[in-house]
Structure formats: structure tokens, C-alpha cells
Design a protein around this nucleic acid. Structure first.
Length: 260
DNA sequence: ATGTCGATACTTTATCGA
């Protein structure tokens, strides 16, 4: 079973590329972030024609997450618990039947947090605490669990082309990186790092300043696996090729193959 | 310091968020 995540930076601008990628790589489950669309504006039709069920949690103009699945959903839950006043559409969680068991999959668009310091950075850290709390609850279920998405955190120096260039950025602060490590230390495995040790493998390249051409990237899109999912982990790869397409997203897909 | 892109609105250019 292949489960992928991709920050598409606007579904209206990217629908053609998304359909091409789905046709070419045929993931069983695809978590999308930054759809920048309301639920009713999401182009479910052409995606359903490729054999996918569609769950959407969107809002007008920015943010927004979705999950596409070849198997029907047993359960769909939008919103990260812990703050009823948080109106950003950044979290969608589903349960999908898989080979006699189930997988629980979340599509996560973690706040960017810039400028730092300030209220946006405070919101990011508070959101990460809520994610930690929710992850603890989910881990107690002892299910195959995949928390996939744009974490907007650079885990280590080896995950950025030039650590000094990002030293003052919200994505690379000690507090931010510590909060991600806390998630790992709950028992969640960074799937890419479990499969690969080479440094400088990226999932995002800025549109500006020729970042793609110079390979000035960062690795911020990740799939975190519960022990029950990590036990079934076969492969994890980055679909770097989509960054070279016409009208690309600034992020590329990352996917895992699970033995289920 | 700069660069680019996508969405939105009292739109034909500026603002915001990234």
C-alpha cells in the first residue's frame, strides 16, 4: 500500500499536475496540503474519475487539506483538537480499511510561523503542542498510523542546503525543532530517515532566486509512522521529478510503501 | 537586499501568505 503526501500550493493552479501525478504513480492514499480552496470549490470530479474517494477540509483563499483514497473511508475527522477558536483548515484524519486491518492517516499542514518572533510563531508552537497531545492519544490505539504532511520544520542541519541561511527562520528555531523531536520521541518514526541516511535530500525549493536550479532546498515534508506502521515500512521516496514540471508546486510528493 | 507564486478584492494593481 502506497501512501503519499504533497503540498500542492493551490488546487486550482495545480489540478492538471495532480491528475498527471496520480495517473503516473497511482498512490493508494494521497494527503494534500495548501489546497487554497473551499470544500465546494475542490475539483473532486476528475479525481473521482481516476478511482479515488475524496475527503476535503478547506477554507477560502489559503490553507486547506484533503485526502484521496482508492479505498472508501471508514471515518473522517477534520480539525486538530485542543482549540475551538482555531479556524485554520490544517488537519484532516481518516481511517481506511487495508488488507484485513486499517490504517489511520492524517493530512497535516503545520503553520509556517514566520515572522519570528511574533503571534504567528506563537501559533505555530501552540499548534505543535496540540499535535503532540493528539498524537499521544492516537498512539494509545496501537494502530498503523501515518501522520503525513508539510511540517514546516527543518529537522537537522543535513536537511537544508545552508543552515546559516535559515538560522533566523521559524522553520529552523530550536523550539520548533525541539517540538518535532518530541513527536519523534513519542515513538513516531520519520519514514524517510528510516530508509535513507544520505544528507541533503529535499522536498521544497523556493520559487525565488533560482533555488531549484541551485538545489537550494529543505526537507520539510514528512511521514511520521506509529510503531505498527513502521513495522510494515518497505520504502520511502521523494518524487523530485514534479519540481521540474511546468507550473510546479514549490513542494514535491513524498511517499511510503507499507506491507499491508 | 533582492528574487516568485497563488488567491483575493471596492482588480487591471496592491495586499497577504508563503
Amino acid at each position: 500500500m502506497r501512501i503519499a503526501t504533497w503540498n500542492i500550493n493551490g488546487v486550482k493552479a495545480r489540478i492538471s499536475g495532480v491528475l498527471t501525478w496520480l495517473s503516473q504513480t497511482s498512490p493508494d492514499v494521497a494527503c494534500l496540503q495548501e489546497i487554497k480552496s473551499q470544500d465546494e470549490g475542490f475539483p473532486a470530479g476528475p479525481i473521482e474519475e481516476l478511482g479515488y474517494n475524496v475527503a476535503v477540509h478547506g477554507q477560502k483563499g489559503f490553507n486547506g487539506v484533503a485526502i484521496l483514497s482508492k479505498h472508501p473511508f471508514d471515518e473522517i475527522n477534520a480539525r486538530l483538537p485542543g482549540d475551538d477558536d482555531d479556524d485554520h483548515a490544517r488537519y484532516l484524519e481518516v481511517v481506511i480499511p487495508a488488507g484485513g486491518t486499517i490504517v489511520r492517516v492524517a493530512s497535516i499542514y503545520l503553520p509556517n510561523g514566520n515572522p519570528m518572533p511574533g503571534p504567528k510563531f506563537d501559533y505555530k508552537l501552540a499548534w505543535m503542542e496540540r499535535l503532540e497531545s493528539h498524537a499521544k492519544t492516537l498512539l494509545m490505539q496501537e494502530e498503523p498510523l501515518i501522520l503525513a504532511g508539510d511540517y514546516n520544520v527543518i529537522p537537522e542541519d543535513e536537511d537544508v542546503y545552508d543552515p546559516e541561511a535559515w538560522r533566523d527562520d521559524a522553520l529552523f528555531q530550536p523550539e520548533t525543532r525541539g517540538a518535532l523531536r518530541t513527536l519523534h520521541n513519542l515513538g513516531l518514526t520519520d519514514a524517510y530517515r528510516a530508509c535513507h541516511t544520505e544528507p541533503h535530500k529535499y522536498t521544497f525549493w523556493d520559487y525565488q532566486a533560482g533555488a531549484w536550479q541551485k538545489d537550494n532546498g529543505i526537507r520539510i515534508d514528512q511521514l511520521l509512522l506509529s510503531p505498527q506502521a513502521a513495522d510494515r515500512l518497505a520504502h520511502c521516496e521523494i518524487d523530485r521529478f514534479t519540481r521540474g514540471w511546468e507550473k510546479p508546486s514549490d513542494h514535491v510528493p513524498v511517499w511510503v510503501e507499507l506491507n499491508v
